Computed example of a mutant assay.
Amino acid sequence: MVDERLQVRGYPQRARYDLEFAAQVLDAGRMGHLAMTRDGYPHLVPMMYVRIEDSVHIHCRAKTPLATDLESGTRIAFAVTIVDGIVLANEVRFHSMNYRSLVVHGIATPVADESAKRSSFNALAAHVWPGRAGLTPATTEQLASVALFSLPLVEFSGKQRTGPPLAGITPPLPDVWAGHVDLEEIPAEFHSAHESPAAPEPIWPF
């Protein structure tokens, strides 16, 4: 039985609560949004992340307000959404997106071990672009400047929409196209930060 706090109430038939789906969404995404409350105000921080087994690893600069909040054991939510397509209907109210989304709740615990941090950052580099792990090994000083946290995949809920638009009550309009358009993320153009031997090879699929 899924905890009431985690249950998806809007279109509950689209809900997913299994670890396999959670891992799929996390592995497909690159950016997540971390949400928390500080001094009575909501805070939302976009950030990169990487999945390490059954946890999400997130990081920030050490000794910042965000690091202090996470170290204090504040409860957070971390969300990732993958847009798979655009849904176009005859009526604007039935326009939508095909997507996979995941929201993880819990308390992130610090990862202090230097070897574990190094392994996590190598995994993050490979997640951003496969083949980048270990190109420039971090020094002890560089690792110390970053706070790393692990958020377990225990309290979470996912949601997925696929397929065409919902049927409206009005008849189809002959001059208006309705359906759904699949989207793909592909590399476009490479812009070198400095003189380098060659641009990295595209990795498929994204």
Rank of each mutant, 00 (worst) to 15 (best):
P171Y: 06
I86G: 02
P65W: 03
R5V: 02
T109A: 15
A23R: 15
Y49F: 15
R75N: 10
N122R: 09
M97A: 13
V2M: 12
T68W: 00
A198W: 05
P42W: 09
L88P: 02
H105V: 00
A89W: 00
H33G: 00
L70A: 05
L143I: 06
G32F: 04
E155L: 09
V92E: 10
L148K: 01
S115K: 14
P164W: 10
P12A: 07
K159M: 07
Q160C: 08
N90H: 15
D3M: 12
H191Y: 13
H43R: 12
A178E: 14
A144Q: 12
P187V: 12
T68P: 00
P187Y: 03
Q160H: 11
G131R: 09
P164A: 09
G168D: 11
L88Q: 11
T170L: 14
A79W: 00
L151T: 01
L148F: 04
E114T: 15
H194F: 13
M1I: 08
A28I: 04
A35P: 02
L151G: 01
R161F: 08
R100W: 04
E141L: 07
S157G: 10
V104K: 01
A23N: 06
T37M: 14
A79I: 01
R75S: 14
E91M: 10
E184V: 10
W177C: 05
V146D: 02
I203A: 12
D175T: 09
L183Y: 13
V103N: 08
D27H: 07
M48G: 14
P174Y: 01
A116N: 04
V80S: 01
A67Y: 02
G134L: 05
A35M: 07
A15W: 02
E189M: 09
R9M: 11
A22Q: 09
